[in-house]
Amino acid sequence: MTLRIGVIGTGAIGRDHARRINKVLQGGRIVALSDVNIASCEAVKNDIAPDAQIFTTGEELIASPDVDAVLVTSWGATHEQYVLAAIAAGKPCFCEKPLATTAEGARRIVDAEVAFGRRLVQVGFMRRYDAGYLALKKIVDSQIGAPLMVHAAHRNPAVPEQYVTPMAIHDTLIHEIDVLRWLLDDDYVSAQVVFPRVSSHSHAKLRDPQIVLLETKKGVRIDVEVFVNCRYGYDIQCQVVGEEGLANLPEPLSVVMRKDASLQNAILTDWKDRFIASYDVELQDFILAAAKGTASGPSSWDGYVAAITSDACVAAQETGAIVPIALPPRPILY
């Protein structure tokens, strides 16, 4: 049986997810589209999903008896309302990050899912599906002893003028917040942010770079460099130092070349290229689980924890203080 999927939000990521579902993956088909920009829906229908019905609102799409499962790839501020509607309808839902724009909103989703009694939501933290991170986790879990420290970096070549200091947490660090918690099987207890010298490529509303310092319940100390105007490429680094060894995240596959008296290899410049395979794997995972009426992978609880941690990191940006991170008891559902 083919899973009938509706996409709410047909911008860049929604369009790309629709393409992979209809043209790359197995078991799913795009049957419905919704976006505030109807022309965007029509473009996706014409190019990717000719049989899809266009709905005026996301709520109408979710309520349609012809839709089995939902992808929420709309503007972040709308995620909560659509995910809650999908839960109320009993339909599996894949939601791109953020799950909600506030921790309170994410908690409402957790509470609704717990009340429903079955997991329905998968959050789009695709790094858990990346082959490099999976290989790193296998080593961390079995070969280097107890983790003591993590040194990580998230570097972008450049960002738009509207990118401001808090976005370094909510839009950039959010991936490290989730994947490092998963990698270590641990939770955070505090956050601090320190600012080195500001890059000349930054602007008045963006302090760049910055270093985020996190501490976990098990006592692991984490430092993450966030540098979104590094100029040289899109570069994700992660090193875990354990009691008996250390392990590094593998570099993306690249041919090493000797030319013009130099030894060199290409560095990616686009995040979509760096994690393209992981998007395929995560959505195939969603389709398989949704066909059974449930969800797997990163959960609403993971989205909620990421929101709490993000809020603490932004408070640390603003105050310079070490900000405690307190989590409520984890529901049995998760």
Rank of each mutant, 00 (worst) to 15 (best):
V224F: 00
T309K: 03
Q239A: 10
P298F: 03
V240L: 10
D302A: 09
K292N: 15
P252C: 08
P252D: 06
I308Q: 05
A312Y: 01
D280R: 09
S278F: 00
A290P: 03
T269R: 11
D311A: 15
A290V: 10
S300H: 02
C238L: 08
K259S: 15
F227K: 09
D260H: 12
T269D: 11
I276F: 09
G303T: 03
V256S: 10
A261G: 12
V255G: 05
E282L: 11
F286E: 08
R221T: 07
K292E: 15
S262K: 13
E251R: 10
V226Y: 00
Y234N: 08
F286A: 07
R274I: 12
V255T: 13
Y232P: 00
R274C: 09
K272G: 11
S278V: 04
P250A: 06
I267W: 01
A247N: 05
V226C: 07
W271H: 14
D223M: 13
F286T: 05
G303I: 04
R258G: 14
F227L: 12
L253I: 09
I287K: 04
V224A: 04
G233Q: 03
I308G: 04
C238V: 09
E251Q: 12
G293M: 08
S300D: 06
V256I: 12
Y304V: 08
S262G: 13
V256P: 05
G245S: 06
